[in-house]
Design a protein around this nucleic acid. Structure first.
Lengths: 150, 150
DNA sequence: TCACTATACGTGTATATACTCCTATTATAA
DNA sequence: TTATAATAGGAGTATATACACGTATAGTGA
């Protein structure tokens, strides 16, 4: 079993999955603390922003853009819908689809949240340095593409 | 409201939190698919490895090392304990503590999982390139430290 | 038209995550 | 020694995540 311990050192330190997940936990803390005055979670902020940008989107359309499982997105929409930030209605042309749009309340909470996001984002960019951030985002996007291919 | 749309473009694309989380979702898919023969989730593999390396660890000790909330770790241990891969006993010297150790079954499942992890890890390293991986892990560690300070 | 396939989506189930509040035990100071 | 503070940990609650499976609608070819 001595061999096993040796074998465990690498996955304990160099596992790409573990390190990205760990970083996700850590960075989420920062952003959620910043967004706390709005009551929005990091994911919820992301969903509101994505919905705003898409204008009108379907569940699957949003899921693809966010690289998020479709059923996960459905579940994540629930709290936002309950709070009245988004509206989900059946598609007119294709009745299988469900159209997601921001409500007025959703636009308002976004107006409150955007400067809070901007502050924490700028703070992180300043701490990490713009070049490292640019590099990191690029490297992450490559990682994402890698998983997409499979 | 035209302003709001403009304001949303940056958080929709350049949000560090969103991109790391997105990458975490994507990379987790790869590793969990590789580990599927063992039935282990990515996090569970991580916990087993960490427990193996630590030898005997407390909940808080493990949580700190994994940059994971203590209560999250307690919850994550449950499936592993139920499957008999780890054993959790009250500490002898400090009875507030709980000592986590690998069982024989835990060591066995690790023996099965380690080569599967190694295969997917090597595959990812090969696809991304060793230099990008090294760079990415370094950048992620800086990000983690940033969140730790707060 | 009708059977078949493909697509869009939801539900059941299980794990992952962390905040708030609580208990038990240990350490410390008066 | 005892009251108080500090530490280790769990439970309640809510959200995040995704797989397996099922339903409804749309498209397609015989």
């Amino acid at each position: 079993m001595r061999t096993q311990l040796t074998e465990c050192l690498e996955p304990a330190q160099g596992c790409i999955c573990f390190n990205i997940r760990k970083s996700a936990r850590a960075i989420t803390q920062l952003y959620e603390e910043a967004l706390r005055p709005t009551g929005l979670r990091a994911t919820q902020f992301t969903l509101l922003v994505a919905t705003r940008v898409m204008g009108t989107a379907t569940i699957s359309g949003l899921a693809k853009g966010l690289v998020m499982d479709r059923t996960t997105l459905t579940r994540n929409m629930k709290p936002l819908e309950k709070q009245g930030f988004i509206r989900i209605v059946p598609g007119k042309e294709d009745r299988r689809e469900r159209e997601v749009t921001l409500t007025l309340a959703g636009q308002e909470i976004l107006t409150t949240a955007l400067p809070l996001w901007k502050t924490v984002q700028q703070s992180v960019v300043e701490s990490l340095g713009q070049s490292r951030v640019t590099r990191l985002l690029k490297d992450l996007s490559v990682t994402i593409e890698l998983a997409q291919v499979e």
